[in-house]
Design a protein around this nucleic acid. Structure first.
Lengths: 216, 216
DNA sequence: CTTTGTGAACTGCTTCACAGCC
DNA sequence: GGCTGTGAAGCAGTTCACAAAG
């Protein structure tokens, strides 16, 4: 009977930060790193890093630290980055097109396999190395390429409808740039990339500079 | 002697979600809303919403709910959205330009007052209703317009240098699209908009579908 | 002597349940 | 009856401190 441990959500949120940093450190030719030093680099307390990593076994060496390449690859495996993830983009406006181009240049682990738009005038145009296709082609492509992830960069009014369609066709993760809360079943995960959310949070903390307090 | 209460970070993270949703609800002409119904709309438990709002006084009416417009405006005030925030963009690549254009169309509360790029070939080009300017112009503009917020959309190699410069000139909040962890003083806040982080988190949860568990 | 891995204490957020008010 | 505001209970994540290992 296999024992199974629930990993804290906050641990999973941080792993990509570690991964991103380790790639950079590896490029610099550094082979070993302590939770102390890594902590400074990613802006996370060393004991948090150790606790996070400990969930997945003994990844470090006591008295020494972590082997950079080994740790990097371990995290990649944990996150599921030991394979390529196909994803699609819905919405080929300015933002969508920029994301597609960006992915073509810098994308690793995730590669764009289809761009869709509702606007007939855009069908056939090239973006991110792909031709823009009509929404009707989406179901088949998702099935053929076994796509699980979608980026959504359509206007607010369309976004919920698009989300519905994606979910219906088997998409399990959505990265949404639309300025609304998408309603999806519990087995589908949505991350909000609407930058206004972050700008507003920044505004709060800057308004209440220093003292994150309220009242008088 | 004024009493001051520390607001939980998680409360502040959620307020923009409420705000975004309330704007939509208001447009639909709905005047009153219960935490129950709002909760379904934003995907947050009603008691969480009530606790969040209670930090800022009695914003609702018992037995009735919350007045949509009143609550919306209260949250705006809390977040500091009762004024316009000027911000600058550093990095006029494809992504930066798309963000600038997007802000011009949809931006409220935050308006772009300057776009900067290191590349001499780009200086003078128009983007988001602004002309791209050289980095050297940045300090003066920040001072003149009292800018506190910056978006950074430059390559990884440049990002830390840019962050340093921004901080040196008084920027207090950074929304960074660069794929690195920026190191800044404790009085400066950075949000990571690097979409690879979210894609990797999605990959984890999809890989471990249903059971967010580990071990065997 | 260094640094990890980890139980125990602590902190902070969420959930619960209900008193207070409409 | 309905819904908010809120103390109390419960839970999850962080911090601490140190034993274990190189």
């Amino acid at each position: 009977m296999p024992f199974r441990i629930k990993i804290p959500r906050s641990t999973i949120e941080r792993l990509p930060l570690y991964y991103r940093c380790l790639n950079l450190i590896e490029e610099h030719g550094i082979e070993e790193i302590s939770s102390q030093v890594l902590g400074v680099r990613v802006g996370v307390d060393p004991s948090v890093i150790r606790k996070d990593l400990a969930w997945f076994g003994e990844l470090g060496k006591r008295g020494v630290g972590y082997n950079v390449t080994y740790l990097k690859e371990a995290i990649a495996r944990i996150l599921g980055l030991d394979r390529e993830w196909p994803f699609i983009l819905v919405g080929a406006g300015k933002l969508g097109m920029a994301l597609a181009e960006h992915n073509r240049k810098y994308g690793r682990h995730f590669h764009l396999v289809g761009v869709f738009d509702r606007d007939p005038a855009k069908i056939g145009l090239e973006v991110g190395g792909m031709q823009i296709r009509p929404m009707e082609d989406m179901p088949l492509l998702i099935k053929e390429k076994d796509v699980k992830i979608a980026m959504v960069a359509v206007p607010a009014e369309e976004a919920q409808k698009v989300a519905h369609e994606l979910v219906k066709n088997g998409i399990k993760g959505i990265l949404s740039y639309a300025p609304i809360t998408l309603s999806v079943p519990p087995d589908v995960l949505v991350y909000n990339a609407d930058y206004n959310l972050d700008l507003q949070r920044l505004a709060y903390y800057i308004s209440n500079e220093g003292e994150q307090t309220w009242g008088e």
